[in-house]
Nucleic acid binder design. Structure first.
Lengths: 174, 174
DNA sequence: TATTGTTATACTCTATAACTATA
DNA sequence: TATAGTTATAGAGTATAACAATA
């Protein structure tokens, strides 16, 4: 009955304010919305390539550490093994990536850019930098570096090990 | 040949720095990584519910504007019509959401929380607020409000109309 | 035994198109 | 004609589990 009294006497939006939760002030939700905006900008800039942001990340990483294997990609992108296998397959199908078995470890795939991939990556990098600049133009000039740094801090707060979740007793602490 | 010279004489990571593009300073990539961290924290906090961040967003919005239809959800969440239909169906299956045809417009579904949904939403809101607090703890205290505001700015820079992409001549402008 | 990679499976989200029924 | 919603289809990304080959 007390619940009914609360529901009846207080609009949900006011309840939201009362307990300090508002969707449009919620990091979780804003992060998603911001990524929607970023992905939309990316899609517009890369529409002729059929490339996704994740596929570009893989190309960039292989470009930076040519000869890495798929585990290297997992570590660098946060994408898991099976998704990585798919991504690599899609990029090979596009002719941008190639792989061969490592000489020193027959389990391991050595990844490298194809000649075409190496050429295209240069223009992809420029485009991605432009998308980034465009996104940052939504922010006041003085706040851009701080925003990128803050994103980096949140991005790196969760190691892939999964142990991080268990460590965060903050959730239960209140 | 000049390309080969560049590739041979300069490591890719240095090229990245030269043209101002670095994956770990890239908004596009950091936004994704940050969301991975946020989703992981969310999943840990909501593991007993089977709820996804998007499903929670729908519940919150219906809670704030009970009686909205699915178009209202599309506008509030940025999720498209067909995804929204799926989301609503999943939430109905969980017994959290109910809908009926609108009296004034027989095409329109009026959405409302079930009694169970209304009760659970209160605890969901608290949990989401805790996840948010935890994420923000990765940032220096003085930068939190600014970060949330910056996220909001990027989130709202792309209207759903799609016209926004065409408007952004910045991409070609350089 | 542990690691690398693959495959199978499943689910969420996204997106488009075609469709029904209403307006 | 336009709108609200559904359905079908497709693809991307994520996740788990099981597996083969290798270390």
């Amino acid at each position: 009955m007390s619940r009914l009294a609360i529901d009846g006497g207080m609009r949900a939006v006011d309840q939201a304010k009362a307990n300090g939760f508002d969707l449009n002030g919620c990091v979780l939700h804003l992060l998603h919305r911001a990524q929607q905006a970023a992905d939309e900008a990316f899609a517009a800039a890369f529409s002729d390539t059929g490339l996704t942001p994740r596929q570009l990340a893989v190309l960039v990483i292989v470009g930076e550490r040519e000869g890495t294997n798929q585990v290297g990609l997992v570590e660098a992108t946060g994408i898991d093994r099976s998704t990585t296998a798919d991504l690599v397959r899609r990029l090979m199908r596009k002719g941008l990536l190639a792989r061969r078995r490592a000489r020193h470890d027959a389990r391991s795939n050595v990844l490298r850019l194809t000649d075409e991939g190496r050429v295209l990556l240069e223009s992809f990098r420029s485009r991605a930098a432009e998308v980034d600049r465009m996104l940052l133009e939504a922010l006041p000039e003085g706040g851009r570096a701080g925003f990128v740094e803050a994103l980096g801090r949140i991005a790196t707060m969760a190691p892939l090990t999964g142990g991080a979740v268990a460590d965060r007793s903050l959730l239960a602490a209140e």
